[in-house]
Design a protein around this nucleic acid. Sequence first.
DNA 1: AGTGAGAACGGACTATAGTCCGGTTCATGG
DNA 2: CCATGAACCGGACTATAGTCCGTTCTCACT
Lengths: 201, 201
Amino acid sequence: MPLELLRTPPPKERSDAARNRAAVLDAAARLFAERGVEAVTMDQVATAAGVGKGTLFRRFGDKAGLAAALLDARERVLQQAILEGPPPLGPGAPNAKRAVAFVDAYLDHLLEHVALVRMSETAAPGARYRIGAYRFWHRHLAILLDGTPDPEHASHAVLAALAAEHVAAILPDVGEKRLRAGVRRLVASVAAAPPCQEDPS
Amino acid sequence: MPLELLRTPPPKERSDAARNRAAVLDAAARLFAERGVEAVTMDQVATAAGVGKGTLFRRFGDKAGLAAALLDARERVLQQAILEGPPPLGPGAPNAKRAVAFVDAYLDHLLEHVALVRMSETAAPGARYRIGAYRFWHRHLAILLDGTPDPEHASHAVLAALAAEHVAAILPDVGEKRLRAGVRRLVASVAAAPPCQEDPS
DNA sequence: AGTGAGAACGGACTATAGTCCGGTTCATGG
DNA sequence: CCATGAACCGGACTATAGTCCGTTCTCACT
């Protein structure tokens, strides 16, 4: 028995489970695209997928989890580009340039799926900060902001300006152009702060 | 808009309405303090106040509105100190100093009522950006960041790092000390950015 | 193939936010 | 003091997220 439990790879997914998971993702993608994420209930997703609510929730946890699952593939593309892609997004460029490239790329991703990302971040309280994706972005940015006094906090602060809720709220006010420029400027000034900012009260 | 509803308007408030409003605020304050904001249902508030649910919701709109009403007095104190208090929070100090003083004071306020502010900001989607208080903070900070290329966006970005959701999430990670220092540094570097940051790609 | 353990299924069930509308109470003018 | 309309009251009602648990299906091992 102990030997069985030690198997590192995930225990194989049952065929019915796989079939239902695909059906749910398929139905959800279609419904969300048709009617908007907010307007679709979990009951509707379950019905459209030909699946019970219990199945839906056990698989994805909650509505945020379902949205996250739909975003998963896209996020992985971005993560891969960061880890192994060409500079300046990938390794090889100076940190400051990579940080700017990251926020640019992240905004591309975000603006293409605002509603979905927003759902994945806001359905549960504090959901955003618990999902693996956030951890990844945060760690990456913290490493790039290495020269600052507190890279961890600086990274959190920049990501706060990239929260879906925040972006969705200010986009109508400032527009995409100013938003992009503003975020670039933000990350640049945060990264460049220590050398020029010398004036503790 | 809720702010409008909270000020006793010119059209005289009926005596029974006033009595019920006071009873609700009283009961809500007590219950929230006793059991935590999240754990208290609107039904419980209504019952404890000796009032029907209809009354509760008509008066305060939703749970966010109730939380905002409870915070109203405190917020006004801070707003008053900003408008007419002594420097550096009030008028008279240089803008950069006032901006730092503002985030300090705002964090004092926020950390004292995280749960309540969080509820007022997150109960409804996008609630934070619609309530009058946010508008006030944003306008104030934008004026102080006048020298930056886009004060409006810079102000939004700093406030993003002060969102209750964000602060509540990172506080366990970084602690109050680093949080305060990080935010101070953020606003300082944002305010100081244009003179030192010279490197458009 | 037969079989048993356990994972997956699904729909009834619960909890809670927010809505609705008929009945009641207040403030004003006669 | 009484009539009257407007504003307010309150609890039954709706909608939806999320849970529970008896039943069904898969798969590995005889």
